[in-house]
């Protein structure tokens, strides 16, 4: 599969399901800020009680993520940046979309490995995830990595939605594209805020309680 259709699939997968999943992820995490340890545990449970959850993860997250990520790296490689001579907002966004995509790819690979994959390995459980996260984000280095990774991902998401609307011929004229820029900026602010609130909530003492947290971290690092 090459050319037009590959790019179209890439564009579609970015919105359905990946953007939808990102929003869902932000809302689930927000439970950590809103409902604390117990609220987050409940939110994780609700999600994992979905029917055929493994297949949902496979077809709505992992496979789309793999295609979108790998094909996206190829798109990023193809660009020849010329910001030096064209310092326009749109050209900045063109470059940032590619840079944030690469950062998001690295971040997400690490993030999936350090959380979801650790559950598969049996190093932690869904109930202990809150404490598990607490132990990661209380380390300054990992916390900064999280902040950068999350902002790169949410920017890539919001700007990607804007580009999707252009690529599918929904916003055609300059006025429509300007208004959708503001809408996507709003989307970026809201989703980033949800993730930030949850990240800072995970740093709170409340999440330190989980008993096995320290041992699971040891197994992750060691």
């Amino acid at each position: 599969m090459k050319g037009y259709y590959a790019r179209k699939v890439h564009s579609l997968l970015g919105v359905i399901p990946l953007s939808l999943f990102l929003i869902e992820h932000a809302i689930t995490n927000y439970a950590a800020f809103d409902g604390g340890q117990e609220g987050f545990r409940k939110a994780v449970h609700t999600l994992n009680d979905l029917p055929l959850v493994f297949f949902l993860e496979l077809f709505a997250i992992w496979l789309p993520l793999l295609f979108h990520g790998v094909y996206g790296l190829y798109i990023a490689y193809q660009a020849q940046p010329n910001l030096g001579h064209f310092k326009t907002e749109r050209n900045w966004r063109f470059i940032l979309q590619r840079v944030s995509g690469v950062i998001a790819f690295v971040f997400i690979v690490w993030h999936v490995y350090s959380t979801r994959f650790q559950i598969t390995l049996g190093n932690t459980t869904h109930d202990e995830l809150g404490g598990f996260m607490h132990n990661i984000v209380t380390q300054p280095g990992f916390f900064v990595f999280f902040l950068v990774g999350v902002i790169a991902t949410t920017f890539h998401f919001a700007n990607g939605v804007w580009a999707f609307l252009v690529s599918w011929g929904i916003t055609v004229g300059p006025r429509a594209q300007r208004i959708s820029s503001y809408a996507c900026l709003g989307l970026f602010v809201i989703v980033t805020a949800l993730f930030m609130l949850s990240l800072f909530a995970f740093r709170g003492e409340e999440f330190a309680d989980t008993a096995s947290a320290i041992t699971t971290l040891k197994t992750m690092i060691g």
Binding site: F86, T88, R90, N91, F94, V166, S167, V172, G173, P174
Partner: peptide, 24 residues
Amino acid sequence: GNSQNCVRACPKGIPLTTSIAELN
């Protein structure tokens, strides 16, 4: 890739990005 440099650079002021979006 929607950098939209073309429409800024065009010496004839042709709405190139509108054309591309319409063709999309």
